[in-house]
Amino acid sequence: MSGSGVVTVYGNGAITETSTNKKSPFSVKVGLAQMLRGGVIMDVVNAEQARIAEEAGACAVMALERVPADIRAQGGVARMSDPQLIKEIKRAVTIPVMAKARIGHFVEAQILEAIGVDYVDESEVLTLADDENHINKHNFQIPFVCGCRNLGEALRRIREGAAMIRTKGEAGTGNIIEAVRHVRSVMGDIRVLRNMDDDEVFTFAKKISAPYDLVMQTKQLGRLPVVHFAAGGVATPADAALMMQLGCDGVFVGSGVFKSGDPARRARAIVQAVTHYSDPGMLADVSCGLGEAMVGINLNDEKVERYAARSE
């Protein structure tokens, strides 16, 4: 079985890797994501913010030049961050450092791999480099996290080699509605799938345009076969706990922390909210006196660009 990432519950090769990437098998890639479970990953733009995030208890940081809220405000083409900045952030903290590459831009991913980031986010928040194809993530030793809006999209990304999935939400808005919609869509589809007759799974796989074997595996597991975080619009501890109660393994917080009045306190409160997501008393305690939350954007406005819809 060497050279293929097989899932024991099925025994007969549900997830097989297409590459002969022996040094960094899929199990190790998923393993790091598993170590992040129950944690919060925060967007930071410099070493100082990274230190604040680490002190607050973030389980990883996402190194960026601009947080999504600023990308929205300033417009223009958003690209991979300067490797120099990522290196500085890497030096400043001991927790894992992630960085974003444009969708389909495999050279940016190669550069990020070369400077030794721990995880690459192939992100729709940056401007697309390829509007048809995603990066073939099997070719990399480094693990990838990818966004999704529904089950089909999640399983397509996993087939391309993503070792971690985040539901997209709508980054940089401070508005949780899209995140809820996407998490509910994924979880709802999984619930439908679980109660489905095995004979119907073929058509269901076709309908959601996902590989049959992964659909079947998801059905048997009753969850995505990789770690599943929520993202896009989390601004308060309650938002984070909502995502956890809907069934996510952890939360990405982008603009929500460092666009608020008191980043250190808010970061710490969101970390605690994710740990104690099912304890309303504790959530009430940590939500007290956090200062101003980020302003946020109303998504009923037609002029707001939808990042989530940029890729399929």
């Binding site: 060497s2 293929s4 097989v6 899932v7 024991t8 098998p25 598993q34 969850r223």
Partner: peptide
Amino acid sequence: KIELPIYLP
């Protein structure tokens, strides 16, 4: 409670 699958190398 459902857990993640165990991946073999």
